[in-house]
Every structure is written in C-alpha cells, then in structure tokens.
Nucleic acid binder design. Sequence first.
DNA 1: CTAATGACATTTG
DNA 2: ACAAATGCCATTA
Length: 105
Amino acid sequence: MTKIDPKKVYMLTKKIPRGKVTTYGEIAKVLGGIKYSRAVGKILNKNFDRHVPCHRVVCFNGKVGGFRKGIQRKIKILKKEGIKIRNGKVLNFDKVLFKFSKKVK
DNA sequence: CTAATGACATTTG
DNA sequence: ACAAATGCCATTA
C-alpha cells in the first residue's frame, strides 16, 4: 500500500508548535512525496480531529486554504496564536512556517 | 470499476 | 501579480 497513513498526518500536525504553521506540501513530502498534498488535505478534511491543530495547516503559498468549519474560524485561531493574516494570507509566512524532518522512513 | 471531486502544488500566459 | 491549465493521490457517488 502506497497510501499515506492518516495517523502520520495527525502526528505531524500535532507536532506543530504553537504560533507556527505548516503546509500540506511539507507533510506530504515527509509522507513520501509532494504529490500527496491533496491526499493529506483530504484526510484532514474527512478525519479532522479536535486534538489535531488542523488550523495550523495552510497552503504552501501562505494562503489559509480552507477550513471545514469556516475559514474565518481558522484565521481567528491563527491570529490568536500569534500569526498575522491579511486577506486570507499569512504574513511572515517564512517565520511561522514549521518544517518537519524529512527523514526517515 | 469508472467518473467526479477536493482543506494542494507547480508552471505558463 | 493574477488567472488558467496540468498533475497527483484518496475518497465518494
């Protein structure tokens, strides 16, 4: 099975420190390929758990992307975390962007 | 099983 | 810089 494990997605997402965000692409890369970005988003959308800070996951472009509960909700939380958002885009994206260790396998 | 859709990413115009 | 088109994976109808 070349499928990615939702568990892994949750694990990585949970590892995101407060005040930081990550992108689907990073997660996908860690999972095995940048192309998994879509799959990751889908998994989160279908299984998004409250224990997982899915609101800390945004697009590679710095855009918030989307949120099941409502994009505004996500933005509000992120702003509270210390992340500044303008017009649905994250400011200082490079500063708040958290990267995982691609190793491993 | 096939077709369509989606919380993305990248390239080109 | 923005818009449109293309590629990829997983899930649902």
